[in-house]
């Protein structure tokens, strides 16, 4: 059922200092105890602001960063326990699409070389003619002309480059694609092309996606289930529509109300939660609920001392807040100076 399951995943980066040999002087708690499940054929969206650990989490799924502890169960195997050679082989089935299509393509490789590298690595389709045919078919699937083969990344527009990035993942016929900010480097008018392409490919090849982005609107659009991250942990997880209509975690509420909507009527009438201050450093996260330093619904002592677990509050809806029900029932009100209208 669940193709990909993450159990209590932690990724802590050591902070090194030293003159001759480096000493570890602390850790950045980039991902600090995340559990989530992604069903086959589903799109799981991860959203959060910079520094929340979403990119690290995405990379940890592929073990592109060292995993400190926890499990990444893919189709029954724990990727975190595999040898590095075993992991390398498994990568064929889990592919990644990167944010910046220019820097994630080797500028000295032409498109054919980019697309055949993975095939060669995994000894797929040894016959040269068959390989070329497969590459052409993939190019066609992502909407690039076949004369693109001899060209180099810098000769394409941003949107086309991202299509190359998608083709590079697709050519290996993976089961899962992890897309880290797949459209944020693209122009607005081109973003929709890539989003639609990703949706079409998913339908055709019944792929499973994990889409990571800071743009809540994009994530909501493309995902079946959305997980909201804050400072290394998941604070809320819900089906896409439910998340918008009834967000339960204070951070989700604030995040959602901060996203501008291209509609003056909505903009003028809706309420906005303004968070005070900035994101605390992930090297020194606050005790208790990670969000309590900025939360306008914060309650004395419990929020500062006890870290809330992610718990089920509805059909497929999980939240990590002690007071979610009371806030929903209106028993706990928001600090008034935090809300503005229009």
């Amino acid at each position: 059922m669940n193709l990909l399951s993450v159990r209590d995943l932690k990724v802590h980066f050591p902070i090194r200092r030293g003159v001759l040999f480096d000493r570890v002087v602390g850790h950045v708690y980039a991902v600090d105890g995340v559990s989530l499940d992604v069903a086959r054929g589903q799109t799981y969206g991860l959203v959060g602001e910079s520094g929340c650990g979403k990119t690290t989490l995405g990379r940890a799924l592929l073990r592109l960063v060292p995993i400190t502890s926890g499990q990444v169960l893919f189709d029954g195997t724990d990727l975190a326990a595999l040898s590095s050679e075993g992991m390398r082989k498994e990568r064929r089935r889990l592919q990644m699409v990167f944010q910046d299509p220019m820097s994630s393509l080797d500028p000295r490789q032409n498109v054919e070389s980019i697309l055949s590298e993975g095939l060669a690595t995994h000894n797929m389709i040894g016959d040269r003619k068959a390989r070329r045919a497969h590459i052409r078919k993939t190019l066609d699937a992502v909407g690039l002309p076949s004369n693109a083969l001899e060209r180099y990344p810098h000769e394409f527009s941003g949107g086309q480059r991202q299509r190359i990035g998608i083709a590079r993942a697709l050519v290996l016929e993976p089961d899962v694609i992890i897309a880290d900010e797949p459209v944020s480097a693209l122009d607005v008018s081109v973003q929709a092309q890539v989003i639609n392409l990703m949706e079409e490919i998913q339908e055709e090849l019944s792929l499973t996606y994990v889409v990571i982005a800071h743009d809540l609107a994009v994530v909501r659009h493309i995902s079946d289930v959305v997980g909201v991250m804050y400072l290394g942990g998941l604070v809320e997880e819900a089906p896409s529509d439910v998340l918008y209509v009834s967000p339960k975690h204070p951070y989700t509420k604030a995040l959602m109300s901060a996203v501008p909507v291209p509609d003056p009527e909505v903009e003028e009438s809706r309420e906005r939660v303004l968070l005070r201050g900035d994101l605390p450093s992930p090297a020194n996260p606050p005790a208790g609920c990670r969000f309590h330093t900025r939360c306008p619904w914060r309650q004395e002592t419990r929020c500062d001392t006890e870290r809330p677990e992610l718990r089920v509050v509805g059909e497929g809806h999980k939240v990590a807040c002690h007071w979610a029900e009371k806030i929903e029932a209106g028993e706990i009100g928001v600090r008034e100076d935090a809300v503005v209208t229009g």
């Binding site: 592919q95 990167f98 000295r108 993975g118 690595t121």
Partner: peptide
């Protein structure tokens, strides 16, 4: 990023060094 991309493809480290890092 493209070195990470190659790693994600499953390319061996030695090949990444020779084919990507060194020429660039």
């Amino acid at each position: 990023d493209y070195v990470m991309a190659s790693t994600a493809l499953g390319v061996r480290k030695s090949r990444i060094v020779l084919n990507h890092i060194l020429p660039n």
